[in-house]
Amino acid sequence: MLSFEQKQAIIESFPELTKKEISMKRVNYHFEESLYEKTIVVEKLHPNGNGFVYVGDLLKYDKLASDKGLVNIRDFEEHALRDIIRDAIDFLSEDLDIPVVEKWTSREGLTLELRHHQRDWNIYYQDNLEETFGTREDAVEYLLDEGFKLKK
């Protein structure tokens, strides 16, 4: 487990974040450039190593996040802590009004669409939702495993 000081050093390596001390020697880190009302990325980091990262409704962290979209980082190692903070910043800086649609085809000529919609990556056959993924990488892995290729 990382110490409080190690976690602070990792968090403070993200220049986008601003440190704000709160009660009981705890610290919050804000992302002031957030496109949303929510600006706190790291909440209540405590000298005992406990703290939370806001991931909202990212499917990638669905099993770890509380109902409020917070993940406890007490037992996180450096790589996992860096990844979750980067994901949280990306989450708060993502403009959901920009649609992404990719067409994927199989050898048999079947076409599926991979659509990015409000943080999720959805696979559609015609207008029917087939699968939902939290990351593009997971959706692409699924499509490739099923024998689909990105249509150019």
Rank of each mutant, 00 (worst) to 15 (best):
I40N: 05
K68T: 13
F133K: 05
R107N: 12
K68W: 09
P47A: 05
R82Y: 02
L81G: 05
D83H: 09
L45V: 08
Y54A: 04
R86E: 12
G69W: 07
R74F: 14
L112S: 03
H79K: 15
Y124M: 06
D90R: 13
R74S: 11
P47T: 09
L64I: 01
D120S: 10
E131K: 15
F76P: 07
L81T: 11
E113N: 14
P99C: 05
V41F: 02
N50I: 06
P47C: 03
E43T: 08
E131F: 14
I73G: 08
R82F: 01
F52D: 10
E78F: 03
L96T: 14
D90A: 12
V71A: 04
G56Y: 06
G51F: 03
W121D: 00
V55S: 00
Y54W: 05
L45K: 06
G134D: 02
N50R: 14
L70D: 06
L92H: 13
K63D: 13
T132R: 12
I73L: 08
W104E: 00
V53K: 04
L58G: 01
R74W: 13
V42G: 03
A80W: 07
I123P: 00
D87G: 05
L70T: 02
A88E: 04
D75S: 15
E102Y: 06
F91P: 01
R136F: 08
Q118P: 00
V55G: 00
V101G: 03
N122E: 15
D95N: 15
E113R: 14
Y124P: 01
E131N: 14
D62Y: 09
E94D: 10
R119C: 02
N48D: 15
L70R: 12
F133L: 09
D83I: 08
L70Y: 15
F133T: 07
L59I: 05
G56W: 08
R82P: 00
G109D: 10
A65Q: 07
H116R: 13
K68Y: 12
G51L: 04
L59T: 01
T39M: 13
E102G: 04
L58M: 14
I98Q: 12
E137F: 13
T105S: 15
A65T: 07
D67H: 10
N48L: 07
Y61H: 05
T111I: 15
N122V: 08
E77S: 10
L81H: 11
R119D: 09
E43N: 12
L112T: 03
V53M: 05
I89S: 01
D62G: 07
L129N: 12
G69V: 04
L92E: 11
N122I: 11
I98S: 08
L59R: 08
T132I: 15
E131W: 11
F76Q: 10
R119W: 12
E94L: 09
L81C: 08
V101H: 06
K103Y: 11
D75C: 00
